[in-house]
Amino acid sequence: MGFHKLSLTGRALKLLSQREHSRLELERKLAPHVEEGEDLGAVLDALEAKNFINPERVAQSVLYRRSSKLGTSRVLQELRSKGLDDDTVRAAAEQLKDTEHARAWEVWQRKFGEVPATPQERMKQMRFLASRGFGGEVVNKVVRGQAPEAD
């Protein structure tokens, strides 16, 4: 069986079958494979026109995979790094805002599960949650043992 070289479209579809990719991510991953006479922009335009590349789906995929472990700021940073437009990132921020306390509480419960006994332990817990991208106000509530109100 001869070695079959995948076309740019084939490579893009293979990547998209594994998970949602933004246009920028596909550009970065496919650029090294562009051969003379191939037009990566045109390939990506065609995939976008057929809705194979969809910023909203990329955003939802990241939210689904990452929001249980990360705070809003880290999730939004990841969305921006994928080249998603401001409107898509803003919509994701709105979606995450309401669950920030509950998500931080879950992460804290799994990692620590109890209110710190010493100032050192308190700082350690706060640094951990902050490093995960949770906001200061939420971090303070969680480390004080303030559970999110059940809606």
Rank of each mutant, 00 (worst) to 15 (best):
M1L: 11
G2Y: 04
H4A: 15
H4P: 06
K5H: 10
S7R: 02
L8D: 03
R11N: 02
K14D: 00
L15T: 09
L15N: 05
L16S: 00
S17G: 11
S17E: 12
E20W: 07
E20P: 04
E20Q: 05
E20K: 03
S22R: 01
R23E: 00
E27R: 04
K29L: 13
A31V: 00
A31G: 02
P32V: 13
V34Y: 05
V34F: 08
E36R: 15
G37Q: 05
L44I: 12
A46V: 05
L47Q: 01
L47G: 07
A49Y: 01
A49W: 05
N51H: 10
I53C: 04
N54R: 12
R57Y: 00
V58C: 09
A59F: 07
A59Y: 02
A59M: 10
S61M: 11
Y64P: 11
R66M: 13
R66V: 10
S67A: 14
S67H: 03
S67K: 01
K69V: 02
L70G: 09
T72M: 15
R74H: 09
V75K: 01
V75I: 13
V75Y: 02
L76E: 01
L76I: 14
Q77Y: 10
L79T: 01
L79C: 08
G83P: 07
G83N: 06
L84E: 11
D87L: 15
D87W: 13
D87I: 15
T88I: 15
V89M: 15
R90W: 13
A91M: 10
A91L: 14
A91Y: 05
A92G: 07
A93S: 14
A93N: 01
E94A: 11
K97M: 14
D98E: 12
D98G: 13
E100V: 14
E100G: 10
R103Q: 09
R103Y: 01
R103D: 08
R103M: 01
A104H: 08
W105D: 03
W105N: 02
Q109A: 10
G113S: 07
E114S: 13
E114M: 06
E114W: 00
V115Q: 05
V115R: 03
P116K: 02
A117S: 13
Q120K: 10
Q120P: 10
Q120Y: 10
M123G: 14
K124N: 09
R127T: 15
R127D: 14
F128Y: 15
F128S: 12
F128R: 05
L129N: 02
L129M: 07
A130Q: 14
S131W: 08
R132E: 00
R132N: 04
G133S: 09
G133W: 00
G136H: 08
E137T: 15
E137C: 15
E137W: 09
V138L: 08
V143K: 02
V143T: 00
V143Y: 01
V143S: 02
V143A: 07
R144G: 10
Q146F: 02
A147P: 13
